[in-house]
Computed example of a mutant assay.
Amino acid sequence: MKNILPFLIFLLCFNSIQGLAQDELPIRGLAIAAPKPNEVDRFVKFIHEELAPRHINTLVLRVDYNYQFESHPELRDEVALSRDEVKKLVASSKQHGIKIIPQINLLGHQSWGTETENLLTVYPEFDETPHVQIPEKYVWPNPDGLYCKSYCPLHPGVHKVVFALVDEIMEVFEADAFHAGMDEVFYIGDDKCPRCQGRDKAELFAGEVTKIRNHLAISDQRLWIWGDRLLEGKTTGLGLWEASYNSTHRAIDLIPKDVVINDWHYEKPVGTPVYFGMKGFDVVSCSWRKPEVGISHVEDMFLFRKNNPDEMKDRFAGVMLTVWSGVTPFLDGFDAYMANPNQKLEEKEMNQPWVTFVKMFDRYGELAQKE
């Protein structure tokens, strides 16, 4: 008994520190591009020195084609992560209880600007809109309504390819959840697609979500997606980007309830997590580059958990900071900011994802300590 008592006291103290308000916001996340091979060591250092002390426990890594796939080597980026480099990321994250959720953009985001992404470059037959040509100089708006290309969800060959990629990165990342993206899908059910024309766009979107979800469920893995296509954009005033103008929002009543919704709003902390929660989904509220918005996301999720019935409380799963750049620009900005975090910044310098990351999770720490 003499020998075990100090050990028990140590465990109680350790758990009170490590388990900071686990019941309050179970998910504290960062979403960012997976590091390039030459960025891995720097990112591992960031995991140890910054993510762990801030009690981040979820890391969504946009892998896409930044991995040396064996199943479809023709889809690899020219420079891509090796298996050993991925295992470095996995080991460092596991050390701190951080879950990695790998992402490949499925359905939408198959092109960007003047570049077609790897899938449609190698397999152009999967293109939902082959009649829409990628321009030499991209502008928005444009006559074709081109933002990003989509693959055709009804093409008979597309899932054999993309599911092989999904299975491979789920195995190498030792993951139990996968992020399929599926945001900002403007091309779906195109009138010129021989398979999709005339079909209900909400049913097409829901069918693709369900197909991916069911594939993952075979291996007891869970699907995460961005939530914008499940919100109606016109009546709500949320607009074309944060919500749907092409009727996909009705898919919210057609997809399985175990899909995790990442509800992103970057200009204002819109209260749509309550809508998703009332529909039966677990929801993570996501911010980007405005510190005051990120802080509000944190405060709102605490309030939603406090002020809703027990049946809904845990559906407000947490918060995530999203970064829409590569690792190096983010870490360069973060390091420069942390060298003098009390400096007075102009609005442009303040409205950056690294500043929002710090302010957002500082606020989380304050609120968690009060609980």
Rank of each mutant, 00 (worst) to 15 (best):
P143I: 07
A368E: 07
M1G: 09
Q68A: 13
D167V: 07
I32R: 00
H265A: 09
A31G: 13
W112G: 05
E299N: 11
K94I: 06
D362L: 09
N308S: 15
T121S: 08
L51R: 10
V283Y: 07
W264Y: 06
F69W: 03
L345E: 00
P273H: 06
K313A: 12
T248W: 04
F126Y: 07
E208L: 03
V260R: 02
D64G: 00
D191R: 05
K313I: 11
V319W: 12
R363W: 09
P291Q: 05
N66F: 01
P194T: 10
L107P: 00
D310G: 15
L240S: 13
L303M: 14
V319Q: 13
D77I: 00
L30E: 04
Y151S: 00
D310C: 02
K279Y: 07
E168H: 02
F69A: 00
G333Q: 00
F126W: 04
F334D: 03
G227N: 00
D362T: 12
R222D: 05
E39F: 04
P73E: 08
M338P: 01
H297G: 08
N15R: 11
G207C: 07
V293L: 08
M1A: 10
E49G: 12
I134K: 02
P156D: 04
S93K: 01
E242Q: 13
A52D: 14
V90H: 01
F14S: 15
E346D: 15
H159R: 12
E203Y: 04
Y151R: 06
A202S: 14
P135D: 06
D282I: 08
D300M: 12
R315A: 12
R315V: 10
R42W: 09
P135K: 02
L204P: 06
I212T: 03
S285H: 08
Y65N: 04
E184F: 05
L240A: 11
H72C: 09
I27T: 15
T356W: 05
A33K: 10
E366K: 10
M278D: 14
H48I: 07
T236N: 15
D300T: 10
P37M: 05
L61G: 05
R54M: 14
R213F: 07
M338I: 01
K268T: 11
D332Q: 09
